[in-house]
Write a protein that binds this DNA or RNA. Structure first.
Lengths: 207, 207
DNA sequence: CGATACCAAGCAAGCGCTTGGTTTGTAAAC
DNA sequence: GTTTACAAACCAAGCGCTTGCTTGGTATCG
C-alpha cells in the first residue's frame, strides 16, 4: 500500500478530510499558520483570510477556534498511524522495522504533513485538557508500533537501553529535526539522515 | 567549582539576576508561568500577580512583555553555559565529558532552571527576530562545548555518526525529557536516565 | 530632596465569536 | 424544463471582553 492509497482510504472512511474540500483546505492552511506563528498568535481573521472567506464564516464549519486545532491534530495522528503501520508491515526484520519507523516519522515531520506534525508537538499546551485526552488515546496506538519493535530488538540483544526510554528520546530527537533539517539546502537526504540516526544508536547501515 | 558558586559568580558580574532580588524573583515566576501556560497565554496581569504588584508596575522594570521573555532566555543560557563548561572541565576522558554534558543538560532541563529551559525550547517563536539573533549568539558558545567533545569521540572511533547531527538529535531528545521525565514519581533517577541515554548510543556505563 | 518603586485608573487596539440577512447549490414538484 | 423549496455556505457588521501598555500621582528610603 503506497502513501496516497492510504490517504484515499482514510478519506473515504471520513477519518481525514479531503485536502481539496473546503474543510481540508482550511485545516491545511491552519496547520501552516499554527506552525509559523503559533496557535495563539494566529487569529480567526488570519485563518479566514488564508482560505478567502470572512472570519465569521469560519464558525459555520467549526464551533470554536480550538476545534480547528484539535481537528488538525486528530487527522494528523490518524494519517500517520496508518503510514507507520504500513511501514512496519513492509519491513521483514526488527532492525529494518526500526529503520522504517524512523524514516517514516522523519517523513511525517519534514514532508507533506510536516506543518501539522509540528503543531502536534509545539502547540500541545494550547489544546484544552478534555481534547488532550482524546488525542492521547489516538497516540497510544501509534506508540505501540514503536514499543513492539524496540522490545523485539531488546530481546535480540541489539539494544542496550530500555525501549520506553529509547522511544521518548527518539520522539524528541525526531520532532526536533523540524527546527533544523532543511533537505532542500543540499547536504543530507532523508535516507542519509535516517542512516545517521541508526548509526548513532550503533546500527550500521545494511546489516 | 560547584553550581551555587558558579551562580554567585555570575550574579556578582551582573550577568544573571539575584533570585532573591525583585528582578530575579519576577524572572523566576515568569519562567514558571511561560512554561505552564505559554508566553502568549500569560498576561502581564498574571506576571504582576505572581510577584504581588500591579500590572502597570511591571513596566517600571521592563519596557515590554517581550523583554521579560528575552531576559529569561538570556540569563538561562548564561548560567547553563557556565555550568556546562565546569562539567566538561571536570571530566578527564571524552566519553566522561559527554556523559557530564548529558547529565548537566538533563539537570538544567529537569532541575532548578527547568522552567526557564523549557521556555527556551518551546517559546522560541514568541521572541521577536532581533532578539532571537542576540540569543543565538550566546547559544553558539554553549554548542561549541558539545561539538568539541563529540568530535573527539568521533576521532577516537567511538562514534559512528556525525557530531553535528548527534548534537541536534541530543538537543531534541534531552529537551523533550521535560515533557515526560518525572523523577519524583520514583523509577528512573537522573543518573539512571543518563546511563540509559549513553547506553542508547552504545556507551556502556563505566567504560 | 531626589531617585526608586509602586498604585489606581483607564485607553486604544485586537480578540473570539454572534447575529441577521443574502447567495449558492441541489433536487424534488409541477 | 421551469419553478419551488430548503439547507448549506457565506457576508457585513459589530458586541463584549481582554490585551499590552500609559499616565499621573503617591509612598518609601537613603
Amino acid at each position: 500500500m503506497n502513501p496516497s492509497k492510504i490517504l484515499n482510504a482514510l478519506i473515504s472512511e471520513n477519518l481525514v478530510s479531503d485536502p481539496n474540500g473546503a474543510r481540508g483546505r482550511l485545516l491545511k492552511e491552519a496547520a501552516r499558520l499554527f506552525r509559523d506563528k503559533g496557535y495563539e498568535r494566529t487569529t480567526v481573521r488570519d485563518l479566514a483570510a488564508a482560505v478567502g472567506i470572512q472570519s465569521g464564516s469560519l464558525f459555520h464549519h467549526f464551533r470554536t477556534k480550538e476545534e480547528i486545532l484539535k481537528a488538525v491534530m486528530v487527522e494528523t495522528i490518524r494519517l500517520n498511524t496508518a503510514l507507520m503501520q504500513a511501514a512496519v508491515d513492509a519491513a521483514p526484520t526488527s532492525q529494518e522495522k526500526l529503520r522504517a519507523l524512523v524514516r517514516a516519522e522523519l517523513e511525517s515531520v519534514n514532508g507533506q504533513t510536516g506543518e501539522a506534525m509540528a503543531v502536534l508537538v509545539f502547540e500541545w499546551r494550547s489544546l484544552a485538557e478534555e481534547s488532550q485526552a482524546d488525542v492521547l488515546e489516538l497516540r497510544d496506538i501509534y506508540e505501540k508500533l514503536w514499543l513492539d519493535t524496540l522490545e523485539a530488538l531488546r530481546q535480540e540483544g541489539r539494544l542496550l537501553a530500555e525501549p520506553f526510554v529509547v522511544r521518548r528520546m527518539l520522539t524528541g530527537a525526531l520532532s526536533w529535526t523540524v527546527t533544523w533539517y532543511r533537505p532542500e539546502r543540499g547536504g543530507l537526504t532523508l535516507d542519509g539522515l535516517t542512516d545517521q540516526i541508526m548509526a548513532m544508536m550503533g546500527f550500521a547501515p545494511g546489516i
